[in-house]
Design a protein around this nucleic acid. Structure first.
Lengths: 149, 149
DNA sequence: ACTGTTGACTTCAAGCGTGAAGTCAATGGA
DNA sequence: TCCATTGACTTCACGCTTGAAGTCAACAGT
């Protein structure tokens, strides 16, 4: 088995730093100002953009890039805070839908500027347009190889 | 505050998928075959490459992209398994050094092929050389903006 | 020489994520 | 019609990470 050449090692080392360090950086402002993790924010954000602010749990887990188990735990917390209501899908009782309450909407609305500022500061602004396009392309290639959850 | 345009959103969406999904993918084979997380492997790997297989904890935390707190907990586990020995640095008692035992070396040696195969499969092989160089460049730009821990 | 400060590191305690196990509704086959 | 299967989802229990608090050695100032 062949070890990494210099170019490969640079790419891998860069990526692993990104993977291990960037989440914490993105979360810190959100956590401090809104008490939300990045995943929390993504969940709230996606369901806030859904028709009638209602989305199936399975779809939500997929959009927020998390497992159903993780989502269930998170949404349970949100439900206890009155931000989300879960109920069986009227169209098919096998599914569960999550509905974002007005209170939950206010939470994500209040957190959005912080989130946006953080994303710009730590991700978008340091990169050129070409870098951003490359990042989009690379992420797409790497996602294709990721087996469905 | 201006919301993301399409290009920015694609880059951001791609990155966040990468950040949330890739770690799990990289870890699964390691976890199954060696019982190691990615961070576990990085810690063992870096100290295995140090002179005399000995490295200061602070340096090790930096190289493995983790906090001192996280590293301390991980190395404590390793110490209990006989893979690592911690002792005060003879040159300066304020520091602690981690030494990789023969047993610990065997663990990282045995895990390396799995790790390498996984990195190739999920990161390097799906990308062109240009992509890998772009990834290196992008990661460097994004790391520069990350404040020191 | 004494002591406050600083930085490295460990420990604590709480919250979170994970895989496994369990529950339930709908489907499909006999 | 019955029931095994399938897939969505929840819960459980354990291990891990985190930020805060605590400990210690060395340094710097008086």
């Amino acid at each position: 088995m062949e070890w990494l050449n210099a170019e490969e090692k640079d790419a891998w080392t860069g990526l692993v730093s990104l993977l291990l360090l960037m989440p914490g950086r993105l979360e810190a402002p959100l956590q401090q100002e809104s008490g939300l993790s990045l995943f929390d924010y993504l969940v709230l954000s996606h369901v806030s953009e859904a028709p009638d602010r209602t989305m199936r749990m399975s779809e939500l887990a997929h959009l927020a890039n998390g497992s159903l188990s993780r989502l269930s735990n998170v949404v349970k917390r949100f439900e206890q805070r009155g931000w989300v209501v879960r109920s069986p899908d009227p169209d098919d009782g096998r599914y569960t839908v999550a509905f974002l309450t007005d209170e939950g909407y206010e939470v994500v609305e209040a957190a959005a500027p912080t989130h946006l500022r953080t994303v710009r500061q730590f991700v978008l602004d340091p990169l050129s347009a070409a870098d951003r396009q490359a990042l989009t392309r690379i992420a797409a290639k790497l996602s294709v190889t990721i087996p469905p959850p």
